[in-house]
Amino acid sequence: MGDHIRHGAVRRSYDTVAEEYTKRLHDELAGKPLDRALLAALLEQTEPGTALADLGCGPGHIAAHLASAGTGAEARDPVHTVGIDLSEGMLETGRNRYPGVEFRNGDLLALPAGDGEFGAAVALYSFIHLSADELPTALAEARRVLRPGGLLLLAFHIGEETRHLDEWWGHEVDVDFHFHDPVRVGELLEAAGFAVQMRMERRHYAHEADTRRAYLLARRA
């Protein structure tokens, strides 16, 4: 099946579950101390005054967290944060809940952003909807929209399997979740023009799906 068809299925699936997803996960960071620590480290190393991107932002709760935290070691002023997602349904829930975040509709393979627009970017569990063959293009796009020296934080499920859902919280969907090998993703980051700064793995928290998770922090070389 062509990539554009699969991406359309992902978009429609997230449109379908957008309200339920937001209701269940809008405060998920409260139960993820390691994620909060990594986001704080990213913010501290981001040039003050630069915009941040949340790639595959869903309803925008991570983008809103970044916007309220500020950048730089001492900064506490709100930062301009841009959430980008394929699902207009997700973006609409985000616009209603987080008016301080700018939301844009777009694909990870062709980001609606200018060259060097962002001082840092995060992609937390959004690359799981990309196949292994699509990762190089997505990483090249992430590099394109980052300033030189900008940081990218990735999070994804570890493995080589693909899990498919045709039912999610009582809704009919058609969506694949691709697991990725951290070593391979690190190699692809280096090939795309990043220098990997940190690699971390953790087990799932009690309230999460039973998977191992990887985090990679990379700087645009």
Rank of each mutant, 00 (worst) to 15 (best):
R212N: 09
D166T: 09
E141I: 07
H129P: 14
P148H: 10
D27S: 12
R184S: 05
D176R: 08
R6F: 06
T16C: 04
R12C: 00
Y215P: 02
R220F: 11
A209S: 11
L124P: 09
A73T: 10
A209I: 07
A41L: 15
D15F: 01
L52W: 07
L151D: 07
G149V: 07
V10T: 14
V145S: 09
V183K: 00
E44Y: 10
R12I: 01
R212P: 04
A67L: 12
L55G: 10
G106V: 05
R76H: 13
P99I: 10
V10G: 02
T211C: 05
R97H: 08
M1A: 08
F127Y: 07
F194Q: 05
A53T: 04
A53Q: 07
E92P: 09
E161S: 08
P48S: 01
L25M: 11
E44R: 15
L42K: 02
R213C: 13
P182W: 04
G2M: 14
E160L: 13
F127L: 10
D166L: 01
T137Q: 12
A121M: 11
G83P: 14
D181W: 09
L109P: 00
G60Q: 07
V175Y: 08
F118R: 10
G100V: 07
R163N: 01
L29S: 03
A132T: 14
S13R: 01
L217R: 06
D133S: 15
R24G: 02
E102Q: 11
L29P: 08
D3G: 04
G70K: 14
R95T: 06
G116K: 10
Y215D: 02
T71P: 02
L152A: 07
D3V: 15
W169K: 02
A64T: 08
G83K: 08
A120Q: 00
Y14M: 00
I62N: 02
G100Q: 14
